[in-house]
């Protein structure tokens, strides 16, 4: 057995105690895993982006009132009280963070990747976004404005990436594969 981290050991002890007290079941833990590994994830946000790319009217609604525009999808497992979608253009690049904890649009993108929650990203992206983006492979010209969105309240942000020219000739499934989680956070172009 590999060396367990102290927090993993402690979680197991809490699980054991709370199961014994009838406050928790092992099935409840399994349900959490299934829900977030299979049903909630960046595929939801990708559907929204694909629709906005294909339909200019929908895109206008999405940018005007993101909360209302995603209602029709009835995504589960995400508590997004208010959604603001910010659009990347040839002259503006957006990127999302939560410096105080790790707020993230769960309902659209699932649970955040580890790097999004780690101190390095949270501390640096507000101070040196261009340097951080370059580490992710996004090198921006100086004439591109960088807009960082620090999710410090209950508003959640998602980036609408620029539509690649190639998308015009693709079917919807191929388009969905172009739209990555990282692009909707803003660390990919």
């Amino acid at each position: 057995m590999s060396e367990l981290k102290p927090q993993a050991i402690r979680a197991e002890a809490l699980e054991s105690l709370l199961i014994e007290q009838n406050h928790l079941t092992a099935e409840a833990v399994d349900e959490v895993i299934i829900r977030y590994n299979e049903r909630v994830g960046p595929m939801n946000g990708a559907r929204v982006v694909a629709k906005a790319w294909a339909d200019p009217d929908y895109k206008a609604c999405l940018l005007e009132d993101g909360t209302k525009a995603i209602e029709e999808f009835e995504f589960e497992g995400g508590e997004i009280d208010k959604l603001v979608v910010v659009e990347n253009t040839a002259t503006v690049h957006n990127v999302v963070v939560c410096t105080l904890c790790s707020c993230y649009p769960w309902g659209l993108l699932g649970l955040p990747p580890r790097w999004y929650k780690d101190p390095a990203y949270r501390s640096r992206i507000v101070r040196e976004p261009r340097a951080v983006l370059a580490e992710f492979g996004v090198v921006l010209d100086d004439d591109v404005e960088v807009k960082v969105w620090d999710s410090s309240a209950e508003v959640r942000y998602m980036v609408l990436p620029m539509r690649p020219d190639a998308a015009a000739a693709m079917d919807e499934r191929a388009v969905l594969e172009l739209i990555t989680r990282d692009a909707m956070i803003g660390v990919a172009r």
């Binding site: 699980e15 833990v29 895993i33 410096t99 101190p119 501390s123 507000v126």
Partner: peptide, 27 residues
Amino acid sequence: DLGGKQGHGSIDNAVDETAFHERWEAI
């Protein structure tokens, strides 16, 4: 309150993970 703090190093985004790495996280 990490915004702007220095010294936390480079960002480790090498592993593209599922929602939960290990069972204890789901617990």
